[in-house]
Amino acid sequence: MSPEGLLSIGELAERAGVTVKTVRFYSDLGLLPEVSRSGGGHRRYGPEALDRLRLIRSLRALGLPVPEVSRVLDEGDGLTGSLENALDARLRELGSEMAALRWREAALQLVRDCPAGERAERLRLVGAVSEPPSTAALARFWRGALPARLSSRLRSVILDHAVPRPPVDPTPAQVLAFARLHAIATAPCPAGDPRRPARHRTDADCRPDVLYDGLFDAYSLAAADLRTGRTPDRGQALDCFVTAHATARDLPDTPAFRRRLDTLLTRAADPMIDRYWELTGVLTPSPDPTLGAVHEWLRSALSDDVARAAG
């Protein structure tokens, strides 16, 4: 140490347990200001530089980027403010990184353990999904499928039910299910594709908000029936389901309307959408059935009801 109590760059590096190159790097970035220069142009640091250098190393060891380290040092209080914000941001980043790693681990197991003949397809499916997986494509799929005149309130409710969140700690089977959902959502659908008008769209003369509000009431009733294992049949859930469709079209619930509705729903049935809901169930295993399962239960109940009336 010099008579003035200043440290040379070598002395500072030795006391901090780092290399001279490291001290010079942080100095050049402005994180570790020098007090003066010797007659020969060598850097000199004050005694406080040692604690500052140790703090810099600690912050960098936590993964904070240099700009965040600089903000923490500039604030002067290492326990609040900028440090808390920087640590919160780093924790969010780590959460995202860990989610990506868990997804990658399950994806690797999925490809490694599958039959050789399925490996190319699974690589293609998994490779099309980001890490961590994003639900943006699924949300776009449903926004395009829902009626244009549907209110933002109902659109948001439907998206909450129809867009499953990837599991925090996925199994290989769930990785495959999500990758297949992503493939469905991003598959090209030409204007002439017969599936296009079947994607949960409604008649031009139908009031979509009235329809979907009524459908959610019917779905709640039918979900209770599904949970108890009841087979599709007549009852309050079916009546509520038909009433929703009839009221949305300003029509009465009559046997003729039920026949027309059964025909309409049968024609609109889409195996791709059925598969979507099946895969959604893999991603969100719970006692509560998916909207797709509830809709199919009600559709089957309606078909049975129409068949009985005809017989």
Rank of each mutant, 00 (worst) to 15 (best):
T243I: 02
A86V: 11
R140L: 13
D253H: 11
L251I: 06
R119T: 11
L50H: 04
V69S: 03
D225I: 05
R234A: 12
S151G: 09
F25P: 00
I56K: 01
D88F: 10
L291H: 10
L59D: 01
V18C: 00
R54F: 05
R165Y: 03
L150C: 09
L138E: 02
P166L: 05
G127I: 11
S58N: 08
R43F: 04
G78V: 14
R299Y: 07
F141K: 00
L73E: 02
A269N: 12
R195Q: 12
F141N: 01
P197K: 11
A223M: 10
E11D: 13
W142S: 05
A204D: 15
P164N: 05
A244G: 09
L94H: 10
R260G: 06
R180A: 05
R122A: 07
V20A: 04
L7C: 01
R196T: 07
R112Q: 12
R258D: 05
G127M: 07
D250V: 11
P3V: 10
R44Q: 13
F141L: 09
E14K: 13
G5H: 12
S58P: 01
E4H: 13
V72M: 02
T231L: 14
P132V: 04
L108K: 10
I9R: 04
T171D: 08
L12W: 00
D28E: 15
D288C: 05
R112G: 09
A139S: 15
R124I: 05
D88W: 09
A293S: 13
R92W: 06
L238K: 01
L53V: 02
L110G: 03
R249V: 02
L101Y: 09
A120H: 14
A106H: 03
V168N: 08
R195K: 11
D305F: 00
G127R: 07
A293G: 06
G81H: 07
Q236E: 15
A61F: 07
S303H: 14
L211D: 02
G30T: 10
G17Y: 01
T290D: 03
G40M: 06
A107V: 04
T228H: 12
L265D: 06
D233V: 13
L154Q: 12
A244H: 04
S130Q: 11
H182Q: 09
P172I: 09
G311K: 09
D77P: 05
P65I: 06
R207A: 14
L29A: 13
A198P: 02
V242P: 00
A13K: 00
L298R: 01
P132C: 07
A246F: 06
M1R: 12
V72S: 02
G214W: 02
G10S: 13
C240Y: 04
A107D: 02
R299H: 14
R207K: 14
R43P: 00
R227E: 15
A191F: 13
G229Y: 10
S130R: 12
H245R: 05
W297F: 15
R165M: 09
T228V: 15
S134K: 05
H161K: 12
H200G: 05
C206V: 06
L87S: 03
R258T: 06
D274W: 09
S220K: 10
P208N: 08
G40R: 14
A177I: 05
H200F: 15
S156N: 11
L83Y: 08
D113A: 14
S70M: 06
A301M: 12
D262C: 15
